[in-house]
Every structure is written in C-alpha cells, then in structure tokens.
Amino acid sequence: MDIKIREIISADYAEVVFLWNDVLGMSNVNIANFRETMEEMNREGNYKTFVALIENEVVGFVTIVQALSVGVPIGYLHIQGLAVKRNVQHRGIGTKLLRQTENYAQERGIASIILCSGVKRIEAHAFYEHNGYDRDSYCFDKMIDLTQG
C-alpha cells in the first residue's frame, strides 16, 4: 500500500469534509463553509492542510496552524484536525500525517506541536501516545451565545 502525502487542493475538499463529519463528528462542516475557511486560511499564510492518498483517493488529512506564543519567538504548531477513513485506520496513514507535520515543523525551526483530542476519543489518545505525544494538559472550551447582547 503506497501512501502519498501532499498539500490539499480544491478537488480534495469533499473528501476532507466527509472525514471532518464522519471521523471527527463535526456536523456543521459543509463544502461551502469549508471552501470559505480554506480560502481565508490560505490568505493568512500560517495554515497548512496535508492529505494522505492511496491510489489518488483521499484517505486522511491533517490541518495545522503556526501560532505565536509569548516567550517562544517562532511559536508552535497546533494540529487543528487529523482524521483517517475508518476502513483504512491502523495502516500507518495517521502516523505518516504526523511525520509530515513534524517534518514541516523541523524545517521551520519549530520545536513544539500541540493538539487537543476529545475526552471520549480513547483510541485517538492511544494513537498519539504511541507516536510520542505526551498527555500533559487539558483543553477547555466554551461556546458563547452570540444572540445575547
């Protein structure tokens, strides 16, 4: 099985949207808002999305952003999403996407990569730990009701 990794192109959007919804459980991602977000991310310049391909079919992706941090002049990489199609998981695709991210960081002199993973995603946690990522913090979030002023 030959796995190729490359940057995302617009022809990949439908498959990546499918993965966001199916694997990551994001029900609010659709082609229209994904395309709009990708265009904005490309303009910003500090985001990258890589896709994994088997026989030219998108089977996984990773989206990262280089973020700044006080005291860390070059910042760190934040993995915003990583998913692999369910029927091809456990075949090294996710690991290859992580290695692509790590190589990208190293090429830019970035020494730190962080990510958050949902508390119920036990298999994902084991995958990240197996790939050398430490469980060292909690992520918290809060949805703000924008209809109240």
Results as ranks from 00 to 15, higher is better:
Y76K: 10
V17F: 06
I31V: 11
V16Y: 07
F50A: 12
I93T: 03
R35F: 12
E129I: 15
R91K: 03
G25W: 07
L19F: 01
G92R: 10
D145Q: 09
A11N: 15
E129R: 08
N131E: 06
Y47G: 06
N46S: 13
L146T: 05
N42S: 12
S69P: 02
L146Q: 01
E107G: 14
G132K: 11
N56M: 04
S112D: 15
G75L: 03
Q66E: 11
T63E: 06
D2N: 13
I31N: 12
S117P: 11
A32P: 01
H90M: 10
I110Y: 08
F127G: 04
N42H: 12
V29A: 00
F50S: 06
Y47P: 01
F34Y: 07
V29S: 04
S69Q: 14
E55F: 06
Y133F: 07
F34W: 05
N30F: 01
R35K: 14
N21V: 04
E107M: 12
D12Q: 05
L82S: 12
E39K: 13
N28D: 13
H125N: 04
I9A: 13
G75A: 10
S27H: 11
I74W: 14
R35P: 13
V51F: 11
N56R: 05
L19W: 03
T101N: 05
P73V: 05
V23T: 07
G25K: 01
V23W: 02
N30K: 02
L146A: 00
Y138V: 15
I74G: 13
I74L: 14
L82K: 04
R135T: 12
E36N: 14
K96I: 03
V23N: 00
E55D: 09
F127M: 12
N33E: 06
Y13R: 06
L19K: 02
K85S: 06
L19Q: 02
Q66S: 05
N33P: 00
N21T: 14
G60T: 02
S112W: 12
V59E: 01
N33A: 00
I54Q: 10
G60L: 02
V72K: 12
R91W: 04
R108D: 05
L115T: 09
Q100L: 03
V58L: 05
R35C: 08
N56E: 13
I74K: 15
R86D: 08
D12V: 09
E44T: 06
T37R: 14
A14M: 13
L77F: 10
L115D: 03
R135F: 07
G149C: 14
N28C: 15
I122D: 15
E7S: 08
H130E: 10
K85R: 15
D2T: 14
E55Q: 08
K4V: 04
A111Y: 02
Q106V: 15
F18M: 14
F61H: 00
R108F: 01
E107N: 12
S117E: 00
I93F: 04
G25I: 05
F140P: 13
A67W: 04
K120G: 03
G94A: 01
M41T: 13
E39Q: 05
E7W: 06
T37D: 08
I113W: 02
A124Q: 09
S112C: 09
T101C: 08
P73A: 00
V88C: 07
A14H: 11
N46M: 04
I113Q: 02
A105T: 01
S112V: 06
G45W: 08
Y104N: 12
E36A: 14
Y104M: 03
F127A: 05
A126W: 14
G81A: 11
E57V: 08
V29G: 06
